[in-house]
Amino acid sequence: MNLVVYILKKDVMYDFLLDIKNKFETYVPIKKDITRFKILDNPKDIDFSENSYFPVKEHFFRKKEVIFQFNGSNFLPVELKSKNKIFFGLRRCDLNAIKNQDFIFMKQHNDPYYTSQRKKAVLIGYHCTKALNKYCFCESMNLTDYYDLMLFDKTNYFLVDAKTEKGENLIRKYKKYFKKSNYKISDKDTYIKTRKINKKDISKFYDHKDWDKGINLCLSCSACTEMCPTCYCHEIHDNTEINNPRNAKRIRSWSSCQLKEFTSVAENHTFRDTKEARFKHRIYHQLQYFKERNKINLCTGCGRCITGCPTKIDWVKIINEMR
């Protein structure tokens, strides 16, 4: 959008964060046993060495959300509360995952619960300089630029690229920390070398015997979908009060295609009853079905489904080895 690139010195970055902390709820990656996005306390805690174990999806698409209440005769809409949040240090894959979720919850469907959380959030990226771990594969997922601000790490300073009005406003507001620069962000800066998926279309491999390598190890525990930044399956159920069943809350909560319960209907019929069907469905939805319908990849190649898997099923490797 704009061609002005700013410079943010690394020691100034800490002051900048302390400053925005007063106005915004600032989430930064902090490493303890694993890296998580947590509310900023001390800027020195920030750790860019690895990607956060969990995505920031839960801040927009809530794990559990009351959609409305019912008191026997009337609907009582819930108040949509949200805070001004800044997410600092999101990776390119996660930003694209937010893009996909925006597409689902804001373009395809007008979801007020998601929109109210998402509207006020500012996304500040941190560009990877190399592949973060041996599992990620974003190079073959055609990621695009989708951020408010993006930081490019240049050893002792950051180049800051603003993509949106929101990001530009933030820089204008805190302009004492930023310096203008003539640098132009090129493809060289945005390139991340990772491993790749060597197949564009996996539709004709559905019955391939190599899938068994993954299916035999799969425990259907749904850790992969719980950690996925793009998975958006959910279930809706009513919670009634114990002494007055006419008072009820309708609750939306996360669900997962890996669970039998997800496709079970009346008479205990389950559409995806076998582990095989569930295992393939996730991968095919991420790589194939969503693309056929909406022309974008749902998967963004962050590799969390493999790092989080109890048995470390590397389905990318399985696909790559198929002949």
Binding site: K63, S256, L259, E261, P310
Partner: peptide
């Protein structure tokens, strides 16, 4: 549903990665 569903939702690190014999999955 397995324990992993709630464990991951509670943002815990995986005990199996820390070489602990967890039966959660």
């Amino acid at each position: 549903n397995p324990v992993c569903v709630e464990c991951k939702r509670n943002n815990n690190s995986c005990l199996l990665d820390n070489k602990k014999p967890c039966l959660g999955p």
